Computed example of a mutant assay.
Amino acid sequence: MKILIRSAQTKQEVAFQPGETVFDAMLRSDLAPNSYCGGKGTCGKCKVRWVQKGEEYLACQLPAEEGMVIETVAKDDMQVLAQSMEKAFVLNPVVEGDRKGVGVGVAVDIGTTTMVGYLLDLTTGQELAVTSMANPQRVYGADVISRIAYTQANPDGVEKLREVLVKVLNSMIVDLCQKSRRFRGDVHAMTIAGNTVMLHTLLGVSAVSIANAP
Rank of each mutant, 00 (worst) to 15 (best):
A153G: 02
Q137M: 01
P155R: 15
T131E: 05
D121M: 03
R138M: 09
P136R: 05
N135C: 00
T131F: 03
L161T: 07
R147T: 02
A129F: 03
D143P: 07
V144L: 13
S146M: 08
I173T: 11
I145F: 03
G157R: 02
L169N: 07
N135Q: 00
N135R: 06
V130C: 11
G141R: 01
R138Q: 10
L128K: 13
P136H: 00
P155A: 11
D121W: 00
N135S: 02
V168T: 13
M133F: 07
E163H: 06
L122K: 05
P136E: 03
V158Y: 08
I173N: 11
G157K: 04
M133D: 14
K167N: 14
K167E: 13
L165Q: 11
V174Q: 15
R138H: 06
R162D: 06
V130E: 04
V144A: 11
L161Q: 05
G157E: 04
A149R: 07
Q152N: 13
L128F: 11
L169C: 08
E163P: 10
D121P: 05
V130S: 09
Y140K: 00
A134D: 08
I145M: 10
I148L: 07
D143T: 12
A142S: 13
G157I: 04
A129R: 08
G125I: 07
S146A: 14
I148E: 02
T131H: 07
S146W: 00
L169S: 08
S146Q: 10
Y150Q: 04
L128C: 12
E163G: 09
M133Q: 15
V158Q: 08
P155S: 12
I148N: 06
L165M: 14
T124S: 14
G141K: 00
A134G: 14
T151F: 06
P136M: 04
A129W: 05
M172S: 08
R147Q: 09
G157S: 03
A153W: 10
I148P: 02
I173W: 00
I145A: 02
V174Y: 09
V164L: 07
L165E: 10
T151I: 04
V130G: 03
Q137P: 01
L128N: 06
R147S: 00
G157C: 04
K167Q: 13
V158P: 09
Y140D: 03
E127R: 14
K160E: 15
E159P: 03
A129T: 06
Q126F: 00
D156Q: 15
N154F: 14
E163K: 13
A153T: 12
G125W: 08
R162C: 08
V164D: 04
R138K: 12
I173F: 10
D143R: 09
G125K: 02
V144I: 14
V130K: 11
A149T: 09
E127W: 08
L128Q: 14
L128M: 14
S132A: 15
Y150L: 06
T151E: 03
I173K: 15
Q137S: 01
